[in-house]
């Protein structure tokens, strides 16, 4: 087999070994209930929203910026999109357009502040999280900051439409990250911003674009969130972060998998794996609290193992070598 093919196969195996183990475990633990065609579709469908949220977070994360306000942006854009859709009677297209536009405005504002104030993004994001959580209440006091859409608009969250939305989002994300100068520049900047700056990259401009494109995906996530819930209330006291918790867990796993495969693909596989785990635990009847603990512990062990794997491999090799050297030394002495 040509070495390139072999290399590709090895990387594919490494990428899929953990997801495969998860699937196998839950296939056995749920006695096959989790892998009926319907269940698989449910898993895939439930993976779309966190996957899109991760797409919103990824570019900023590549630059070392963890934007915690993204959850608040998703919910705010859901509410704004839902209300404007109702007001204008524009249906699902309206929901998408208004959600995306509002999210882009919000994240662009976050980026603008990040560039101008030169304050750590953590501080800005936490502050803006509260602002974005309160924003729907200011804009729509009559609805008390919430939005309700009719059940017929739930079709956006149903198959096949949700998969179409995902396919389009993924295609855009993949192309942006891998095939554009923007994607390359982000990776360069994320690697060493001083060197990138010296090489002529306009750092502030790239960061601003990062936030703006993040808003595009956050808006799509907002529209999906609205469609799948039907009613979204304005969150308070950082509760918007729980919306994106599953996405965070998937993100860490995705970063781990991206060592073996393209980052966009790694993230999608990661999200599907985490959703499979969630569904499997639900099917097994495990309480929500314990589910979160199990998912976190599994992730913890996985990341600890992968992070220490080179040391383990080296340790084994050293032990072997040490034994051989000792034997040789004994031979020399006896000789």
């Amino acid at each position: 087999m040509p070495s390139k093919m072999k290399n590709l196969l090895m990387r594919a195996l490494k990428t899929l070994v953990f997801p495969a183990c998860v699937c196998l475990f839950f296939a056995i633990a749920t006695r096959g209930k989790l892998f009926t065609s319907r269940s698989v579709l449910v898993i895939l469908r439930q993976s779309v929203l966190p996957a899109v949220v991760i797409m919103a977070m990824m570019p900023n994360l590549t630059l070392g910026m963890m934007d915690f306000s993204i959850g608040a942006v998703v919910i705010a854009s859901a509410i704004i999109g839902g209300n404007l859709m109702n007001m204008t009677g524009t249906g699902i297209p309206g929901l998408l357009v208004f959600s995306v536009l509002s999210a882009i405005i919000l994240t662009s504002f976050t980026g603008f502040l990040n560039n101008k104030l030169r304050v750590p993004i953590l501080v800005i994001a936490l502050g803006l999280m509260l602002v974005y959580e309160a924003l729907p209440k200011l804009l729509f006091p009559g609805n008390d900051g919430g939005a309700i859409i009719k059940v017929k608009y739930a079709m956006l969250a149903q198959q096949p439409y949700i998969f179409i939305v995902f396919a389009v989002s993924f295609a855009v994300f993949y192309i942006l990250v891998n095939k554009t100068t923007y994607g390359h520049n982000i990776r360069a900047l994320g690697g060493n911003d001083e060197l990138a700056r010296r090489a002529g990259l306009n750092v502030d401009k790239i960061k601003q674009i990062c936030f703006t494109t993040s808003g595009f995906f956050a808006g799509i996530a907002g529209a999906l969130y609205m469609a799948s819930n039907g009613q979204v209330n304005s969150p308070t006291a950082f509760s918007s972060m729980t919306t994106v918790m599953d996405a965070f867990l998937g993100l860490f796993l995705g970063i781990f998998l991206s060592r073996f495969c393209n980052v966009a693909i790694g993230l999608v596989i990661a999200v599907v794996t985490m959703t499979t785990m969630s569904n499997g635990l639900v099917t097994m009847g495990l309480d929500a609290t314990y589910r979160d603990i199990v998912k976190s512990v599994v992730l913890f062990f996985l990341l600890a193992f992968s992070g220490n794997q080179p040391y383990i491999v080296r340790m084994r090799a050293n032990r072997k070598r040490g034994a051989a050297a000792d034997r040789e030394y004994q031979k020399q002495i006896s000789a």
Binding site: T30, Q46, N229, N279
Partner: peptide, 27 residues
């Protein structure tokens, strides 16, 4: 999400009881 999972894993399910019947249940 739970309802989706139940529906897929338990095709024999003929009823759903909810502590809070909010809009997401109907969705």
């Amino acid at each position: 999400d739970s309802i989706s999972t139940f529906a897929a894993a338990y095709p024999e399910m003929d009823g759903i009881w909810c502590a809070i019947l909010n809009e997401s249940i109907f969705q």
